[in-house]
Amino acid sequence: MKFSWMFGSSMEAHHLLYAYVAVWLIQGGYAGWVFSQWLRAGKQTRRIPGPEDEV
C-alpha cells in the first residue's frame, strides 16, 4: 500500500497518524456540536410577532 508507512510502528508514524486523526476529530466534533445545537434551536424557535402581524 502506498501509504503503509503511515501505519508503521515507529513514533514518527504514530504521531503523523494521531495528528491527522486529531484534526478530523476536533473539526468534526465542533461541526457536529454546531449541527446538533442548530437542530435543537430549530425545534425551540418560534417566529417573533412583528408590526406586520397587527391587524
Binding site: 513514533m11 514518527e12 504521531h15 503523523l16 494521531y18 495528528a19 486529531a22 484534526v23 476536533i26 473539526q27 465542533y30
Partner: peptide, 20 residues
C-alpha cells in the same frame, strides 16, 4: 469559537511534531 478550534489544532499538531 473558531479561533479556539484552530488554535487547539495548532497546539496539538505542533506538540505531536515537536515530540518527534
Amino acid at each position: 469559537e473558531i479561533t479556539v478550534v484552530y488554535g487547539t489544532i495548532c497546539l496539538v499538531t505542533g506538540m505531536l511534531w515537536g515530540r518527534v
